[in-house]
Design a protein around this nucleic acid. Structure first.
Lengths: 233, 233
DNA sequence: AATAAATGTGAAAAATATGTAACAAATCAA
DNA sequence: TTGATTTGTTACATATTTTTCACATTTATT
């Protein structure tokens, strides 16, 4: 007897999808399916699966983009199943946030074994941080799945960097984030740690999200350290 | 660039071991090595590594037995690197407790990518477990994760040096810290051990954390020696 | 009690960090 | 291409932090 884990299977090729689902069914796993990227993201939001099995070759969007999208709000384990066997493809997917990478043709036994590994890890971690796809704090709202931010219901027009910056602050509400932590996470690993740029982006972001709002600023400066988004009431 | 993670490399074949260690060194990972199973188990016990890279083909014992042995007391991530490419070998190792399985010949880039995956997971887990990183002593409270200090629930505004100083005292509650120990830890190694500055900072810190509080001061002076934060009730 | 040594205190100077505006460079869509 | 948008850079006024220093106070020693 198995478990209550829910597995999201993302695969556009029907025969392969059937192979996977039949295997899962035979091993008493519960699952839902999606045949393209946007359906996959919607299912990930609405069903909150415990594991995602993801084919990279989807008709509507690149699989790596699906990984990044899901990773923008969720830490759900993602096991990639792909026909692309190039090392560079593997690295790209793993660095984007995938947890494992199987190349087609794959053995169902190996897939099941790697599923068991992931499930074993899940049960260890068990009840982990709540990963909601919508963030709300005061008059500010972020819909991670849609990639949009709102202030008092009105959509904000944010540039990509501004949005990343906002998400990073939001994911760490109440914590002081150091300059280098922010630049590393917004601009990537290799960056000259330029605080000047961060300052001007922070300024424009503040202008946009503190538009005519409350008395207390939502983003505090901690001189010599970094910035912090305050938890609002 | 990197990290404080310690990696145990278990591989009896010297050329392969060198390839791995050279790669790790080039990427600024710290590591220790073992050339057989019993050494590997001893190293895993004594050094408590963060990750184990394990070759299955060891001279003295079967690699799967090493996995099981380590798993009997530790959940350290184990990445298997093996010449055995049979599905049954993979399944056996994964079910024995391995977290990942690479077959030789392997790409060092893929190995590094899978290491990053594992490290990423480690840091997530450690962040969660470190959520209990809150110090409390009387009316004083420090939230290390948030980087903030509170007095009777009210947040204190501390400069970087004041905060460092407070954390240092807090981490050593009850102990007398010498002037030179404090200056070394707050200002860094190369410093002329200026006690005058320390005195000034200690004064402002005291003003802030002993605001209208109790009869007994929380920070004691030990003349000719240093300072001590008292354990309060 | 007198003296010397160590510590506390307040205020200024020095050093450093920040917010902002203006502008240059890069990117992107038509 | 153009024109619009986004991103990166610089200069500078302002604000904050850190250091220095003179002097008062406390503590230890004789």
């Amino acid at each position: 007897m198995n478990n209550n884990y829910n597995i999201l299977v993302v695969e556009d090729d029907a025969p392969v999808r059937n192979l996977i689902t039949t295997t899962l069914k035979a091993n008493e796993y519960k699952f839902i399916t999606a045949a393209n990227g946007s359906d996959a993201i919607m299912s990930a939001v609405s069903h909150n699966p415990d594991i995602v099995l993801l084919d990279l070759g989807l008709p509507d969007m690149d699989g790596v983009d699906v990984i990044e999208k899901i990773r923008s709000w969720s830490n759900v384990p993602i096991i990639v199943i792909s026909a692309r066997s190039e090392i560079s493809d593997k690295i790209e997917a793993l660095d984007a946030g995938a947890d494992d990478y199987l190349t087609k043709p794959f053995s169902v036994e190996e897939l099941l074994a790697r599923l068991r590994v992931t499930l074993r890890r899940l049960s260890v971690v068990s009840e982990q941080s709540s990963s909601a796809s919508v963030f709300e704090n005061g008059s500010l709202k972020i819909d991670y799945a849609a990639g949009c931010a709102y202030l008092n219901g009105d959509e904000l027009h944010l540039t990509p960097i501004e949005y990343k910056l906002l998400c990073l602050m939001a994911k760490n509400v109440g914590k002081v984030l150091t300059h280098s932590y922010i630049t590393r996470n917004v601009w990537g690993t290799s960056w000259n740690n330029d605080v000047a740029s961060l300052r001007v982006f922070m300024a424009t972001l503040r202008k946009k999200i503190e538009k005519a709002s409350d008395t207390t600023p939502i983003i505090q400066t901690h001189i010599g350290v970094g910035y912090r988004m305050m938890k609002m009431e």
